[in-house]
């Protein structure tokens, strides 16, 4: 177990190294940073001085080493646009994105799994058919459209929910949370539904097909033959066996939720990292882009590690132990 975690951590270091390489190459190949930092009236000489001072004339490996060693301690340099440390700007916006993403993920699991179980158990029921049809809509409509429709309905027409922003936030150390105020929670409703709807339908459909698969197996039939209650058969025996693929997909999707919160954050003017990234692209603010890239890669690496550990918890067959399978006898 410990060996497994160590192995995964070493892999993760490699993954992060390569992402860092890609992020670093942004500095080199996406425009000239000096152009972005100075005005038109700056002379060539001043530009060269600045280039020298920022270390842009040093050899590549040296620059790269400087980049990753400072990134490793959370220093991503100074934003070209805002002239403030990138790490500070990200720390300011990270809580907004993480809260939105986590609430969406919880929402999609808490609703998607029961709906999937229901549609799996009552495959020909009327309600199942309604769920399946509605889920098609969820899968095929683009996120931003749903967001805009909701804004129109709940913010413009009914004026019960705010159309943009996070509402009031409370500071817990450096973390600003919107989960503790009514207006903060209200502001979360529409963005988290918009962001989570696709994953919700995906999880529902996944759980449904897995349930249909598992309910056909011999061990479910044998569980019924032992006279276990429907509840025990469906939730204890069937649902648990659907969990491995669900964990895989949920893990991947959580990464995507965080990474692709960009669109939702734009629609709802949500002050998160996605919006920061969009603005950074518009202004070729490379330090922010590089930092964002690294952050997202880090999230994916962490989530994948957690997913692998969850497999271990759920499926005993994946636990490598001595003394398995005792031949024939």
């Amino acid at each position: 177990m410990a060996a497994f975690i160590v192995r995964r951590l070493i892999q993760s270091v490699f993954v992060m190294f390569f992402v860092a390489l890609v992020a670093f190459s942004l500095f080199r190949y996406v425009g000239d940073p000096i152009n972005q930092m100075v005005g038109v009236e700056t002379s060539l000489k001043e530009r060269d001085a600045l280039r020298e001072r920022l270390g842009l004339n040093d050899p590549m490996p040296e620059q790269f080493w400087r980049f990753i060693s400072s990134a490793a301690v959370g220093d991503f340099g100074i934003s070209y646009q805002h002239k403030r440390p990138v790490s500070e700007m990200i720390a300011l916006r990270l809580p907004a994105t993480l809260e939105l993403s986590l609430i969406s993920a919880i929402l999609s699991l808490a609703i998607g799994v029961p709906m999937g179980v229901y549609t799996g158990l009552h495959r020909d029921g009327l309600l199942s058919k309604v769920f399946m049809t509605v889920s098609l809509v969820g899968i095929s409509l683009p996120t931003f459209l749903i967001g805009i429709l909701m804004i129109y309905l709940f913010a413009v027409k009914m004026t019960i929910l705010p159309s943009f922003g996070r509402g009031e936030v409370i500071q817990l150390g450096w973390w600003s949370t919107g989960l503790l105020t009514t207006s903060g929670l209200k502001a979360l409703i529409m963005p988290s539904i918009t962001l989570g709807l696709f994953q919700l339908t995906l999880i529902m459909r996944l759980v449904r097909s897995e349930m249909l698969e598992v309910l056909r197996t011999d061990y479910i039939k044998f569980a019924r033959a032992r006279g276990l209650s429907n509840r025990a058969v469906h939730f204890g025996h069937a649902l648990k066996n659907t969990m491995v693929p669900v964990i895989t997909i949920t893990g991947l999707q959580l990464g995507s939720i965080i990474a692709f919160a960009i669109i939702t954050e734009t629609v709802f003017q949500w002050p998160g990292m996605g919006k920061l990234f969009i603005l950074a692209i518009e202004n070729v603010d490379i330090p922010i882009m590089a930092a964002y890239l690294l952050m997202i890669a880090l999230f994916f690496v962490i989530i994948n590690l957690v997913v692998d550990l969850l497999y271990y918890a759920v499926d005993p067959r994946l636990r490598i132990e001595s003394g398995t399978a005792h031949g024939h006898g």
């Binding site: 197996t217 011999d218 061990y219 044998f222 569980a223 033959a225 032992r226 006279g227």
Partner: peptide, 18 residues
Amino acid sequence: GKEIGAIFQDPLTSLNPL
């Protein structure tokens, strides 16, 4: 289970692996 028990063909798949 209580009055009528059952045994099926394939023991490899009759037990819940988890």
